[in-house]
């Protein structure tokens, strides 16, 4: 039996006007923290949606625990999703529920546990992300970093096998970023889960990820451990890792000749 809990095999996906992915292959071994990196609009979040079965591939397949995601019926898909937890980019907390009820939501929906046990479980999850004291607050009262941590507590409420993170560091201050980095690694190792992180924050991700995939132009442009990629000679990886302004990814969006456009302007 393969040690990979998620496998992406020759996956292609696109919308009417353009193909986003053109034959992507990836594997996510159990117990590891794997990052998917790439520029904005490279289809990283779409990959998470394909793994979660919210989108259907045009070609190829995604397998989760050996089962092809897009071939599952509704109950099969929901069975797979019960093994997954997902942290959305903006948290996606339910705005009409307090912090406690947000974390309790998946437990109440999927278990018949007594109220006292739900109470204890929720406080344990909130304590793990350092927000037990905020359990009565409403989402509107939380800072961006706190909302992300509550969403993380909700994502791991049912102790999932796979935890997916969509841009977990976006818009966070350095302290919150460091807290989230630490939590991702700790929760992964404590729960024995597999983490898939979609991000473009190089330094933070390289500090704790086990393996990294770079996606560009619809394919896997590079892959390896953070050390491999830091020392990579590939022009795209070099530009991305060192944050260079120009390179294989040009600074300018394709446009007509600059001089001709300026000279040809008529008011």
């Amino acid at each position: 039996m393969t040690n990979n809990i998620v496998e992406i095999d020759n996956l292609s996906f696109g919308y009417k006007t353009r193909m986003l992915h053109k034959g992507i292959n990836m594997s996510f071994p159990r117990g590891k923290v794997v990052a998917i990196m790439g520029g904005s609009g490279s289809g990283k979040t779409t990959l998470l949606r394909l793994i979660g079965g919210q989108l259907r591939p045009t070609k190829g397949e995604v397998r989760v625990t050996g089962k092809v995601v897009h071939q599952q019926n509704r109950s099969g898909l929901y069975d797979l999703r019960r093994k997954m937890g997902m942290l959305f980019q903006r948290g996606a907390l339910f705005s009409d529920l307090c912090v406690f009820d947000n974390v309790a939501f998946p437990i109440r929906e999927h278990t018949d546990l007594p109220l006292s046990m739900i109470h204890d479980l929720v406080l344990m999850k909130l304590n793990a992300v350092g927000l037990r004291g905020a359990h009565k607050m409403m989402p509107a009262e939380l800072s961006g970093g706190m909302a992300r941590r509550v969403a993380l507590a909700r994502a791991v409420a049912l102790d999932p096998d796979i935890i997916m993170y969509d841009e977990p560091f976006a818009g966070l201050d350095p302290i919150s970023m460091s807290v989230i980095c630490d939590l991702i690694r700790t929760l992964n190792d404590t729960l024995g889960a597999t983490s898939i992180i979609v991000t473009h924050d190089v330094e933070e991700t390289f500090s704790f990820a086990d393996y990294v995939y770079f996606v560009a132009n619809g394919v896997v442009a590079a892959e390896g451990t953070p050390d491999d990629l830091r020392n990579s000679d590939l022009p795209f990886v070099h530009q991305f890792v060192h944050g260079e302004k120009d390179g294989p990814v040009p600074f300018h969006y394709p446009a007509p000749d600059y001089r001709a456009e300026l000279m040809g302007y008529k008011a």
Binding site: G52, R82, M86, F88, A92, E109
Partner: peptide, 22 residues
């Protein structure tokens, strides 16, 4: 509409909870 914009419905789907039923 705002629940959709805030990804709350997607979050529910990913928690294996049907937004139609809930």
């Amino acid at each position: 509409g705002l629940m959709k914009a805030n990804e709350e419905l997607s979050a529910m789907e990913m928690m294996a909870v049907s937004p139609i039923a809930r």
